[in-house]
Nucleic acid binder design. Structure first.
Lengths: 101, 101
DNA sequence: TCGAAACATGTAAATATATATATGTGACGA
DNA sequence: TCGTCACATATATATATTTACATGTTTCGA
C-alpha cells in the first residue's frame, strides 16, 4: 500500500503562496517576464537588460531557483536560467493587465 | 494637451508586484479562490468556511481591499466581498498547477 | 435607545524580506 | 598555473510582514 503524499488543501495553499511570494517582487516579476516562451538567458545578459548590478540579479535568481520558479544550466562560463514551469508567465500577464485596468 | 499617466515599465512592475504580494499568502490565496466566478461572500461566511477567527479574516480582507484585489459592499449588517478583477483567479489556478507538477 | 450581531482596527512582538556592499568560487584561456 | 571573466554567496542593517490578541465601530431589532 503506497503512501501517496496527498497534501491537505492548506498545505497546497502554503506551497502555492510560497512560490507566488517568490515572484511577487518588481525585479523578479521582470525576470520571469523576460523568460517567456522557454527563453534561456544567462546572468550577464539579464543584469545588462535590467540595468542592475550583477550581485543583485544573482541574489534574485537564487530566490527564484530555490523556490522552484527557475531552473539553471551551466554552459562553459555562463549559467543559463529558464522557467521550470513555462505557464508561470500567465501570472505576469494577468497581474499586469489587472493593474492597468 | 492631456497629460497621460504613462507609467514606466518599472512603475508598472512595482504596482503589479504589490498586487501580487497581497495575494501571495496562504489564507489570502484561499480567499481569492473562494471568490471565483464573481461570487460575493460576507465575512461571517468566509471565516466560517476558512475555520479561522473573525479578526484574522477581516485583517486579510483589509489587505486585499487596500491593495486593489477586492471590493466590498455593505448590505444591512453584512459586508460582502468580491474580486475587483475576476481574472485574478487565473493566478490561483496557475500557481496551484505549477506547484502540483 | 439599548444590546447584540457583524465587522474593523489597533498594538506589540516575532519573523521574514529587502537592499547594499563586500568577498568568494568555478571555468577557461594565455 | 595565473589571471580574469562570470557568477554566487555572505553579512549587516533597514524595513515590512505575520501573528495573536484586545478593543472599537456600525447596524439593526427588540
Amino acid at each position: 500500500m503506497t503512501m501517496t503524499t496527498d497534501r491537505t488543501e492548506q498545505e497546497i495553499m502554503e506551497e502555492a503562496a510560497a512560490m507566488l511570494k517568490a515572484v511577487a517582487h518588481p525585479v523578479r516579476l521582470a525576470i520571469v517576464g523576460m523568460l517567456e516562451g522557454g527563453v534561456r538567458r544567462n546572468v550577464t545578459d539579464l543584469f545588462g537588460a535590467l540595468g542592475l548590478e550583477q550581485a543583485v540579479v544573482s541574489h534574485h535568481l537564487a530566490i527564484l531557483r530555490d523556490r522552484g520558479v527557475l531552473s539553471q544550466e551551466r554552459e562553459g562560463k555562463h549559467v543559463f536560467y529558464f522557467l521550470r514551469h513555462p505557464r508561470l508567465t500567465e501570472i505576469v500577464h494577468c497581474v499586469k493587465d489587472c493593474c492597468m485596468a
